[in-house]
Write a protein that binds this DNA or RNA. Structure first.
Lengths: 258, 258
DNA sequence: CACCGCGTTCGCACTATGTGCGAAACGGCT
DNA sequence: AGCCGTTTCGCACATAGTGCGAACGCGGTG
């Protein structure tokens, strides 16, 4: 055993290297040469070429004729598409979000829970009601300070929540962010009872968000539908918004099973 | 040496296994359990778990709390996005295609050359002028029977073309498809001279397509802009179409460099 | 033409690296 | 308790992976 972890020691070296190569090439807009990769990973030529050959064979990497640079290949595209598909942002689902957006006059979000991450699968907004903050389609770390983050945590049992908190210490984002585990625990229980999660200025100042759970055919909570509005408007509109997200989440769930 | 290739012998076994796992998981809409993966690959438990641990650590795979299934993780998303970015289908570029579509009243395509593959980066169409055939956004094998495929081959030297033909024997798709290497060679020369490629019913019956090359700042041909129309209309409109794709390709090239 | 510089492949010797097997620790469920 | 299935651990073996240096191929250059 050379280095790595002293005990346990998962981590197949050559596998890690291959994965790292993919990331390197992905991060380089115009690709990388074998030499550059070898150098950045501190590997010998021989080894590098064999790793690259493996990636090339499986079409994870491609290279232009003539050029000596490696770029991402078709298999990466396939994987990305497969993932996109798994995020269920299909046309019928988008229509639901659009209807929600039109009904409440605010940006509507579909998020999908993936391990400890939350994937924003789709955002339906408009010039009049633009998406807020830096929230964009793609993966992001889950946070207990967002309405859908709460929903995700609420879908777990105590042990699951504990495991999450071990890895993600509850950082305070705004003055209203919860940092106390007991308080969070209570709030999750209430969310489990109501099947709706609310967040007011815990994630971003001036903003509030309300989310309802999307379920798989088997009943598992797999994601959330949410809308975000100005915090000052929230109290007056909450009943209406709640009905809208509940309906939207239900419709999305139905579209999934169908 | 166990099996695999008798000589030479590229192919890092554990790397291949890791990549194969990614594909397996990607192909399974709801993910796979460790046992299923082990079984499908014919591997021992121990080994499988170590490979999975590696993928999990680097966030190529994720798993829901509670669930024992592995699903694609955030790094796959990142790679897919990086690739998308490399395909240059940015907003300004799309605007160019939209303008082309409006100008010629036909679907407009942006393709990017990637090794021996062609990636359809974007299609701009409309209800009145829908995209044709099964051509969709994503990777596909290059073919000398498409206008952009010809353009890609024309961007290579003789050796490069030869290498391509070794792997992709020129199959006849329609009655008009070229199958003779010498004829193809001549046509490629003409394309190099004109800097435009035309295809009439060589790929799909009743359809014609005209494409112009997109270039990188360095002058390399990196892709193509094209429009496809009914074959019977082509002759009468060809001058107009040619001007449109030339202008579009130029504009896209400029957007890339800028 | 002989001489580089660069990218790529080859051969080889060494042992670290990856492997399978079996046992054991978990965790849920009845 | 007992009985799943899942996951971790420990160990012994040799395969699979590694680095090094040399050879090959090629395009450009004085």
């Amino acid at each position: 055993m050379s280095a790595e972890e002293r005990h346990g020691g998962a981590g197949i070296q050559s596998a890690e290297r291959v994965l790292r190569i993919l990331e390197l090439v992905g991060a380089a807009p115009t690709g990388l040469t074998a030499a550059e990769i070898a150098q950045r990973l501190g590997l010998g030529q021989s080894t590098t070429y064999r790793l690259l050959a493996t990636l090339h064979r499986q079409d994870y990497l491609a290279r232009q004729s003539g050029e000596h640079r490696y770029i991402l290949g078709r298999t990466v595209d396939q994987l990305g598409r497969a993932l996109q598909y798994q995020l269920v942002a299909t046309d019928p689902v988008r229509q639901v979000l659009r209807a929600m957006h039109d009904a409440v006059g605010a940006p509507a979000y579909l998020t999908v829970f993936r391990g400890d991450d939350i994937a924003v699968a789709h955002i339906e907004d408009s010039a009049a009601h633009p998406r807020i903050g830096q929230l964009h389609v793609g993966f992001s770390e889950a946070s207990h300070t967002t309405a859908f983050g709460k929903l995700m945590l609420a879908s777990r049992d105590d042990a699951g929540v504990a495991r999450f908190l071990e890895r993600h210490s509850p950082a305070r984002l705004t003055a209203s962010s919860i940092t106390d585990a007991a308080t969070l625990h209570d709030q999750l229980d209430e969310i489990r009872a109501q099947q709706v999660a609310v967040e007011i200025e815990e994630y971003l100042p001036k903003l509030a968000c309300i989310a309802a759970p999307v379920r798989s055919a088997a009943g598992r909570t797999v994601g959330a539908v949410s809308v975000s509005v100005q915090a000052k408007d929230f109290a007056a509109r909450s009943a209406h918004l709640e009905r809208a997200v509940r309906r939207g989440a239900w419709q999305v769930s139905a579209r999934l099973s169908g």
